[in-house]
Amino acid sequence: MSHPTPYPVRLADEITRQLGQLADHLSRLPPPQAAQVIARILDPDAGVLGGITHLVSTGSVFAKDQAERGALPAEVWLALGRASNELHGITLDLDEHQETLQRVGTQPVTTAAKTPAPVPLVVRRRR
């Protein structure tokens, strides 16, 4: 007799499926709407990235407990802890751009407005 898939596993699968759908929609949205969606995704408190960061952090706490009991190798806990820390740092880095994305997403579309000039991309990393 097969065991039914536990609800949390089904939930994780459904969230993964919906994230794929969101990415598909995002790739087809006009720029103002795409900016609005990205701003919501990046919201550190209520956005997808904040939620995933919290989820990985919770997984790290679980893995630490299991590693202390000998049920998981310590490397699993360390990897989840590093991932959690990195995601937190990324969330902080992106949070500073959320307001700009929100502003771009709420600007009225004007056809007579001057077309924005492309700018060279400069890679800067601040922490």
Score class of each variant (00 low, 15 high):
M1Q: 14
M1C: 15
H3Q: 11
Y7Q: 15
Y7G: 11
V9Y: 01
R10G: 06
A12K: 06
T16H: 09
R17G: 04
R17H: 05
R17Y: 07
Q18C: 11
Q21R: 01
Q21G: 03
L22M: 03
A23R: 12
A23Y: 11
L26T: 07
S27Q: 05
R28V: 04
R28K: 11
L29P: 00
P30A: 15
P30C: 14
P30V: 13
P32S: 05
Q33G: 12
A34R: 12
Q36M: 11
A39F: 03
I41K: 01
L42V: 10
L42C: 08
D43K: 06
D43C: 09
G47D: 02
V48S: 06
L49F: 04
I52M: 08
I52A: 07
T53C: 05
H54V: 08
H54P: 10
L55F: 04
S57L: 08
T58C: 10
G59E: 02
S60E: 03
V61I: 12
F62R: 07
K64F: 05
D65S: 11
G70D: 04
G70T: 02
L72E: 01
L72N: 03
A74R: 08
V76W: 04
A79Y: 08
L80N: 00
L80T: 00
R82T: 02
E86P: 01
L87Q: 00
L92V: 14
L92A: 08
L92K: 15
D93W: 14
L94P: 06
D95S: 08
H97Y: 15
H97I: 13
Q98A: 10
Q98S: 09
E99M: 07
T100N: 10
L101T: 10
L101F: 07
V104K: 04
G105N: 07
T106H: 15
Q107T: 13
T110I: 01
T110R: 02
T111L: 13
A113D: 13
A113H: 13
A113M: 13
T115R: 09
A117N: 15
V122H: 11
R126G: 11
R127L: 11
